[in-house]
C-alpha cells in the first residue's frame, strides 16, 4: 500500500465517535448519525471517508451487515449512514475511517425494533439468558 500523503501526521490523530441510530419507517432499518472528533482536542473531524458495517458479537460471521458508505451530515464532523439489520439485539457497529485518517472504531449498540439505539457497554448488566 502506498503511503498516503500526510499519513505521518495522521498517525498521531486518534478519532473518537458518538453514535445514535434513529429508527425509520421500515422494520429494523435505521439512520445512524455518527459524530467524529479528535480524541485529544475534541475538534470535529471532517472530510473523512467513512463506511459503516455491523455484526453480532456472538455470531459475527452469520449475522453481519455489508458496509455502507456514510455521507457527511449538515453539522461539522457528523456523518449519516442507513443500515438495515436482520434481527433485533446487540450489534457491534464498525466505523471504518479512510482517506485523511485510517482507523476503525467499534461501538456496541442494542437495537430494538422502532426504538432509538445507543451505545452500551457490554460489561454493564443486561437482561441476559443467564438470569435463569
Amino acid at each position: 500500500m502506498a503511503c498516503l500523503p500526510g499519513s505521518m501526521q495522521a498517525a498521531d490523530i486518534r478519532a473518537k465517535a458518538d453514535v445514535a441510530c434513529q429508527p425509520t419507517a421500515g422494520t429494523l432499518t435505521y439512520v445512524c448519525t455518527i459524530r467524529l472528533t479528535d480524541s485529544r482536542t475534541n475538534e470535529p473531524l471532517t472530510g473523512i471517508d467513512l463506511s459503516v458495517g455491523a455484526d453480532m458479537p456472538s455470531m459475527p460471521m452469520m449475522h453481519n451487515v455489508r458496509p455502507v458508505k456514510a455521507t457527511p451530515g449538515r453539522e461539522k464532523g457528523t456523518y449519516q449512514a442507513h443500515i438495515e439489520l436482520e434481527m433485533a439485539g446487540e450489534w457491534a457497529l464498525q466505523l471504518n475511517l479512510s482517506g485523511k485518517l485510517r482507523d476503525r472504531l467499534v461501538q456496541v449498540l442494542r437495537f430494538e425494533d422502532g426504538e432509538i439505539a445507543r451505545e452500551i457497554s457490554p460489561a454493564a448488566p443486561r437482561p441476559a439468558r443467564q438470569k435463569h
Partner: peptide
C-alpha cells in the same frame, strides 16, 4: 438450529 432460530425471529421480531 440456525433455521429454527431464524424462524423464531420471523414469528416475533423483537429481542425481548
Amino acid at each position: 438450529w440456525m433455521q429454527l432460530e431464524q424462524a423464531a425471529i420471523l414469528i416475533l421480531p423483537r429481542h425481548t
